[in-house]
């Protein structure tokens, strides 16, 4: 499958990664090469095969629905690029 620059632009947007317009054709070419490699999977007969959800046959564990941790606002905010008055600060999101 060949990926065009329009698709590359859309994927970059979905992934929230800024890609300069001039770099899109090269990116599309790289995607095409990788997807070309992946296309081999179409040769496999997967009729009636369930997609794997867990590699080990174990049920995902559940724990009691209780509070086990918390009251660590300072530690949680410690690495934030911008934290003010106990909150993460971000650019304005509502006009």
């Amino acid at each position: 499958m060949s990926i065009d620059t329009e698709t590359a632009r859309r994927v970059a947007k979905l992934a929230r990664i800024k890609v300069e317009e001039a770099d899109l054709p090269e990116l599309a070419g790289e995607f095409s090469a990788i997807l070309g490699f992946i296309e081999q999977l179409n040769e496999v007969d997967v009729e009636g095969v369930e997609p794997m959800t867990s590699v080990t046959p174990q049920r995902l564990k559940r724990r009691d629905d209780v509070v086990t941790d918390g009251d660590q606002a300072e530690a949680v905010l410690k690495n934030a690029p911008d934290a003010r008055e106990g909150f993460f600060a971000v650019p304005k999101v509502v006009e």
Binding site: F31, L35, L41, N42, V46, V49, E50, P51
Partner: peptide, 30 residues
């Protein structure tokens, strides 16, 4: 990393999820 994140985004995107992601998980089961 950008390349892989975007490939991942593509194979999970609407319209391609079955053709790529689900097929790969079936092959993984095999």
């Amino acid at each position: 990393v950008k390349r892989r994140v975007m490939i991942g985004t593509y194979v999970l995107s609407a319209g391609f999820y079955d053709a790529y992601y689900n097929r790969a998980r079936k092959v993984r089961a095999l």
